[in-house]
Design a protein around this nucleic acid. Sequence first.
DNA 1: CTGAGCCCTATACTCACGTATGATTGCGGC
DNA 2: GCCGCAATCATACGTGAGTATAGGGCTCAG
Lengths: 216, 216
Amino acid sequence: MGEDAVIHIIDDDTSLRTALQSLFRSVGMKAQAHDAVRAFLDAKREDAPGCLLLDVRLPGMSGLVFQDQLESLGIDLPVIMMTGHGDIPMSVRAMKAGAVDFLPKPFREQDLLDAVALAVERHRRQRAQREDLADVRRCFASLTPREQQVMTLVTAGLLNKQVAGELNLREITVKIHRGSAMRKMKADSLADLVRMAEALKLPRTPPPPAPQARKP
Amino acid sequence: MGEDAVIHIIDDDTSLRTALQSLFRSVGMKAQAHDAVRAFLDAKREDAPGCLLLDVRLPGMSGLVFQDQLESLGIDLPVIMMTGHGDIPMSVRAMKAGAVDFLPKPFREQDLLDAVALAVERHRRQRAQREDLADVRRCFASLTPREQQVMTLVTAGLLNKQVAGELNLREITVKIHRGSAMRKMKADSLADLVRMAEALKLPRTPPPPAPQARKP
DNA sequence: CTGAGCCCTATACTCACGTATGATTGCGGC
DNA sequence: GCCGCAATCATACGTGAGTATAGGGCTCAG
């Protein structure tokens, strides 16, 4: 079905790295081990589902700190923490930061495998979703500015006529932009377009707040 | 702005209960303390934003077990765990089960207050969302079966004509149901209706999969 | 039985939507 | 200068959506 998962391991304990690699190999999973954050970052990482096994106490940078930086580094791997010298606040911090699990060493192999399976499954879903969203974003980006505006207002529920009013256009012009927006977004119904707008978090401008005369 | 929050405390340590009550009183928050799960369940709980401070080691039932039962009991309070004899697996389990925080005793008052503030804020949001969804659900439930079907297909992106085909109706009939569905759902545009359908997770039936002849 | 509610349909009309055709303007790059 | 593209608008036609009016049928509770 899906691509092969890759398990990334960062731990400075050589014997543990070896043990984990052979463990994953024995269950038919790819694993890449590194002895420090640096090595992990320098390695070329396959763009595949997987997860990150992270030791807390590392040379150079704590696993907890590194975990916080993952997002800004553009790495979206789910994290499983491991540590030999952990305490409760540490585990709570890691879990709050989104870790899938936090395993005190020594742990049972099965506990690790369970956590990894969960994490990889989560990552698969997350990637699929992310991919869909990226598609929609690409489409939206391919729209001209006018088309984006029109799409925004249309999916907010305004009539072509009202959109025209908002943008100071004729209704016919709105229809043109609306049509080409539908085509470019590959939407085959308005309902579709609305859902895409939702995914893009386009603002839901309320229908024009009752036309008012103003005296200058 | 919002209603007053109520902090629910379950702990069998009388002196701690007293201390926490006076702590919350001192910062202007309502608190209700109980010495056991039973007492908490028997007490009438105000329907207000708040959170639940739960001791792990309790007479009768462990806090962790109780936490797992909260949902099925219809209680949606965010949980903050407290314990004097905790370990990492315990805290991880609690966090996985959705706890906002896990505080080993003794903890600093400020840590607790921070966690409580976070939990209450989360609960406020959650309640607001839940309330909106409940409204939509109520509206949808007030639709006749036919109106529900029509709404489902229309928000899936089908034309009136196609809906009529799916349901073996004339198009005019679909229009009638569609119109009354819009009214009853208080939707003022199709876009609105689509978003409600989304919130209700109505199935997005794909457009009729190419009309095929079948031979009997 | 009778009324209420749901469901189905028809005719007729209005308005919204979509597209095709054609044309004009303005901007940026080759 | 010419081309391409975004943007604007017009006229016209066909189709979709929505409402009103007016029926018919059914089932269930009073």
